[in-house]
Design a binder for these strands. Structure first.
Length: 209
DNA sequence: CAGAGGATCGGCT
DNA sequence: GCCGATCCTCTGG
């Protein structure tokens, strides 16, 4: 297990998105408690992408997308959810990768408390808003440098699953591009089944976890 | 300053 | 599967 630094990661958005599959997100909460999860699903929002928040230029909200790569970009959407992204490309270019689903690792009890109601392990980190709720990620972490931050960082342990791709979720523009990437066979993916045909069936017995 | 729309979620049918 | 909640952000006038 080794913490990832900026010099370890690809600069280009799509390569970075694929690289992130199988890596581990670590969160240290304000009270010192820890939690972690393995990245199983991401979406790439590269330069020139009409669906990217940066497509129409820099604004106060999306300014973290224009930082050097490997900074957090956190935004609030639909009046209810935060979403965690990691910036890509060189400073001055607006681009990022959205973290859409994690497989829970350590700190499951911590995360379940932060999600509020009783929720199964399979649903704990399935979806970008759920990740941020479970890990207490909000605008305070927007702009954090993942190379040095002590609240949020990434690590690798050598796990490298096969990667599938599909169209992205919830878009109205550029909805035809296959810029969603996921760990094939993972039980922890978000989205409709048709987007991840190799995902195992999740029956009621699984939901008892 | 008003209006529209959004990289979601959870509940209900 | 569909729909509404909810509120922030950006755009246009």
């Amino acid at each position: 297990m080794r913490r990832l630094r900026r010099t370890d990661v690809p600069l280009a958005t799509d390569a970075f998105a694929r690289f992130l599959i199988g890596k581990i997100v670590f969160r240290r909460f304000d009270d010192g408690a820890m939690a972690s999860g393995r990245i199983v699903e991401v979406e790439a929002y590269g330069p020139g992408d009409a669906a990217s928040h940066a497509f129409r230029g820099r604004t106060p909200r999306n300014s973290s997308m224009f930082l050097a790569n490997f900074h957090a970009y956190v935004y609030f959407i639909y009046g209810s959810a935060f979403c965690l992204n990691i910036s890509s490309e060189a400073a001055g270019t607006g681009a990022a990768v959205l973290i859409r689903a994690l497989e829970p690792l350590d700190g499951r009890a911590e995360m379940q408390v932060r999600r509020g109601s009783a929720v199964s392990i399979l649903d704990l980190l399935r979806g970008p808003g759920r990740i941020c709720a479970a890990l207490t990620i909000d605008r305070r972490l927007d702009g954090a440098d993942l190379d040095t931050d002590e609240r949020l960082w990434l690590a690798q342990d050598g796990y490298a699953p096969p990667i599938g791709s599909s169209t992205r979720i919830g878009l109205s523009r550029a909805a035809d591009l296959n810029h969603r990437y996921y760990a094939c066979g993972s039980r922890y993916l978000s989205g409709r089944r048709a987007l991840s045909p190799d995902r195992p069936f999740i029956g009621s017995s699984d939901l008892a976890n």
